[in-house]
C-alpha cells in the first residue's frame, strides 16, 4: 500500500510540476479584447446603446456589463460575431432585429434647418440651409440621431426593404447531426 501511495504522490508531484513549468514556458499574452471588439463595432459613435461612443460600449461588452446585443445598427450579424469572439452562446431569437433601417426625409415638411445634418455621425444627410435635405442611403446607418432633432418631424426611420438580391434562405428546423471530426 505504501508503495502505491508513494508512487502516486510522486507521479502527481512530477506531473503538477510539469504543468506548472509548461504554463510558465508557454504563457500566451492575452490580446487586448477591448481593442478587438472595438474593431468589430460600426465606429459611428451614434450612442444608441447608451454608452458614450463605440469604445466605451466595447469596454462594457468586454467586461460583461453590456450584452453583445447592445448595438442596434450592428444588428444580429454583429451580435453573432461578438458572441463568437467572446466564446459565449446567445439566443438570437430574442434580439429585436428589425433588420437594417434607414432614415428618410419627408420632402413636403422639411424646412431645411440643417439641424439633422449636424448630428449625423456619418455625414449621410445633405442639403443646404433652406433647401430640402436628403439622406444618402448608402451612408445612413439608421442610428436615429437625426429623428429627435427635426423640428417638423420630417425624418422617419424605415426598414430597408428585403430584396430578391439580398434575401437569405431561412435556417432549416434543427436536426441533430453529430459532430465527429
Amino acid at each position: 500500500m505504501w508503495l502505491a501511495i508513494f508512487s502516486l504522490t510522486l507521479l502527481g508531484t512530477l506531473l503538477g510540476l510539469a504543468l506548472g513549468l509548461a504554463a510558465k514556458r508557454f504563457h500566451v499574452e492575452a490580446s487586448s479584447i477591448v481593442a478587438e471588439i472595438e474593431a468589430l463595432m460600426p465606429g459611428s459613435n451614434c450612442g444608441q446603446c447608451g454608452f458614450a461612443g463605440c469604445p466605451r460600449a466595447a469596454a462594457a461588452i468586454a467586461d460583461g456589463s453590456a450584452p453583445v446585443t447592445v448595438c442596434p445598427p450592428g444588428g444580429k450579424a454583429l451580435a453573432q460575431m461578438l458572441a463568437a469572439r467572446l466564446g459565449i452562446s446567445i439566443d438570437l431569437t430574442s434580439v429585436a432585429d428589425e433588420g437594417p433601417q434607414i432614415a428618410i426625409v419627408a420632402e413636403d415638411i422639411c424646412i431645411g434647418c440643417c439641424r439633422c445634418s449636424k448630428v449625423c455621425p456619418t455625414d449621410a444627410i445633405v442639403g443646404a440651409a433652406k433647401q430640402i435635405h436628403n439622406v444618402i442611403r448608402e451612408a445612413c446607418t439608421g442610428c436615429g440621431n437625426c429623428i429627435d432633432r427635426c423640428p417638423t418631424e420630417a425624418l422617419l426611420l424605415q426598414p430597408l426593404p428585403v430584396t430578391v438580391q439580398h434575401w437569405v434562405w431561412p435556417k432549416p428546423a434543427t436536426v441533430v447531426i453529430a459532430l465527429a471530426v
Binding site: L40, P42, G43, S44, A77, L78, D123, A139
Partner: peptide, 20 residues
C-alpha cells in the same frame, strides 16, 4: 454573404465617421 455585406457596410460607416 450577408455578413460580408454587413462587414463592408460597417467598414464604410467607420470610414465615414472618421472622415466626419
Amino acid at each position: 454573404s450577408a455578413r460580408e455585406r454587413s462587414k463592408l457596410r460597417n467598414d464604410a460607416t467607420r470610414r465615414l465617421a472618421e472622415e466626419r
